[in-house]
């Protein structure tokens, strides 16, 4: 791929208080790709996402989005640039209605195209339309995940980062979710997918990075990783 990366993470070092979590992590995502960041629980995947979107400040390293350095930028400004995360645990607003949740997804856009974008989200997730007046906290786990994704789409992002979207969902819903990611990519989005679920992630991803103990371990195309004896043995139990 000769195009310029839409997202570059270069030598990121990060942690919480006195506890270092990430050591010299680097990755690139090119426009239109689905890139998976894989690894077992506690390896620093969510920490990586949260430092990329400005929820926390990294100790060292740089984050470039769309050719600009966003390492020191605030979370709300980064949303405005078109980079959004769908966080682990969904983090929807339980005390607000489904429609209000979606409306707030467009908060940085100051209400532009809001009606059209809500309709677009309802086309992806017809179930949400049926429940648009319901409080988000009363939705099922799968519906809450749809709402979290829909809320992310409301910001008209160029790139979405999904943090463990399959967590707590039934296998059927997980399959639906992964299908949706392919659809979103077809519709022009770039996707970074953080997952513990290696097998399914590698089915839809173009490339993947495997993290171990907060460090880059293995990377390559999805096919290379699926064919790699190390990956198969360590993560796929084959």
């Amino acid at each position: 791929m000769s195009k310029e990366a839409i997202l570059s993470v270069v030598g990121l070092e990060a942690g919480y208080a006195m506890l270092p979590v990430l050591f010299n992590v680097s990755l690139n995502v090119f426009p239109g790709e689905i890139v998976a960041v894989l690894g077992s629980n506690g390896v620093g995947k969510s920490t990586l996402i949260n430092h990329v979107v400005g929820m926390y400040r990294p100790n060292a390293g740089r984050v470039l989005f769309d050719g600009e350095d966003i390492t020191q930028e605030k979370a709300d400004a980064i949303v405005g640039r078109g980079l959004i995360q769908v966080p682990e645990g969904r983090r929807i607003f339980p005390n607000l209605s489904v429609q209000e949740n979606l409306t707030l997804g467009a908060y940085r856009r100051g209400g532009k195209n809001i009606v059209a974008n809500i309709e677009r989200v309802y086309r992806y997730f017809p179930k949400l339309k049926l429940r648009h007046e319901q409080l988000a906290g009363t939705l099922s786990g799968g519906e809450q995940q749809m709402l979290a994704i829909g809320r992310g789409l409301m910001s008209e992002p160029k790139m979405i980062m999904f943090d463990e979207p399959s967590l707590g969902l039934s296998p059927l819903l997980v399959a639906e979710m992964f299908e949706l990611f392919s659809r979103l990519r077809k519709d022009g989005l770039t996707i970074l997918l953080v997952e513990q679920n290696l097998a399914q992630s590698l089915e839809i991803a173009d490339r993947a990075y495997v993290l171990e103990n907060g460090r880059n371990a293995i990377s390559g195309t999805a096919k290379e990783l699926l064919d790699s004896a190390d990956v198969r043995k360590a993560y796929l139990g084959m």
């Binding site: 949303v79 983090r91 607003f93 005390n95 607000l96 707030l104 940085r108």
Partner: peptide, 23 residues
């Protein structure tokens, strides 16, 4: 209002509020 919605969102879910770009 948008501000009121943001206030209610922040009240219950400040992390989620930052995710959508609320300061």
């Amino acid at each position: 209002t948008d501000f009121g919605r943001a206030m209610r969102a922040v009240a219950k879910e400040p992390f989620g509020a930052r995710v959508v770009g609320i300061d």
